[in-house]
Computed example of a mutant assay.
Amino acid sequence: MSIALIVEFSVKPEHLDAFLSVMKTHAEASQQEPGCVQFKIIAASAAMDGRVFLFEEWRDQEALDWHLKHSKLNDTRKQYDPWIFNRHIVHGHVVNNPS
């Protein structure tokens, strides 16, 4: 059973474009890592809504642990931390995975 993370960011409006740029780079790098099934960035479509969601799916907890330890996640967080005012992470298992 694969592992999923849903991460919700509340981004300061003046930093939304920069945040999305940094996250696109991070997503592209993450998708090249062993065990990354998918890494999606979803921006809210409502006007004036600075929420951005990540949907990450990893083959298993070992793959996610590798990502947390070996990726440039800490450098990415240092970049975006001043641009956000909230982050919420949901960790779960993918129950249905259509082929």
Rank of each mutant, 00 (worst) to 15 (best):
A47Y: 08
Q38D: 10
A44Q: 03
W58M: 08
W83T: 00
Y80E: 06
L54H: 11
E56Y: 08
W66F: 12
Y80G: 02
E62P: 01
I84G: 01
A63L: 05
E56V: 07
G50T: 00
Q38W: 08
L64W: 04
F85E: 13
G35E: 00
D75V: 03
C36M: 09
W83A: 01
C36T: 10
Q79R: 14
D81T: 06
E62T: 13
K78G: 05
F55E: 05
R51Q: 08
Q61C: 12
V52R: 00
S45I: 11
G35V: 06
A63S: 15
W66M: 13
D75L: 13
D81P: 00
G35K: 04
E57H: 08
T76R: 05
A47Q: 13
I41A: 04
W58H: 11
R59N: 07
L54Q: 11
Q79C: 06
D49F: 12
Y80Q: 09
N74A: 14
R77E: 08
D49K: 08
D75P: 00
H70R: 14
K40E: 10
A44G: 03
F55C: 12
A43Q: 14
K78Q: 12
F55T: 08
S71I: 15
R59P: 02
E62Y: 09
Q79A: 06
E56I: 09
L68S: 09
G50D: 02
I41R: 06
A47I: 09
V37I: 14
I84M: 06
R51I: 00
S45V: 12
N74G: 07
N74D: 13
T76P: 03
W66N: 15
D60C: 11
A47M: 08
I42K: 07
P82A: 02
P82W: 01
S71W: 11
R77K: 08
D49T: 01
K40R: 14
A44L: 01
C36S: 08
P82R: 05
E62L: 14
S71Y: 10
N74V: 14
P82N: 04
R77W: 06
W58A: 09
K40P: 07
M48D: 09
F39E: 02
R59H: 15
A43F: 04
K69L: 10
A44V: 02
W83M: 07
H67N: 02
W66C: 10
K40L: 14
Q61G: 09
G35A: 03
R51D: 02
I84K: 04
D65C: 09
E62V: 14
S45E: 15
L54F: 15
V52N: 01
D81C: 03
R77H: 07
D65G: 05
L73T: 06
V52E: 01
W58D: 07
W83R: 03
H70V: 07
C36G: 00
Y80N: 12
I41C: 04
E62W: 05
A44R: 02
D65K: 11
I84Q: 05
R51P: 01
S71M: 12
W58E: 04
F39Q: 02
A43I: 03
S45P: 05
A43L: 07
T76Y: 03
Q79L: 11
S71A: 15
A63Q: 02
W66R: 11
W66K: 12
V52Q: 01
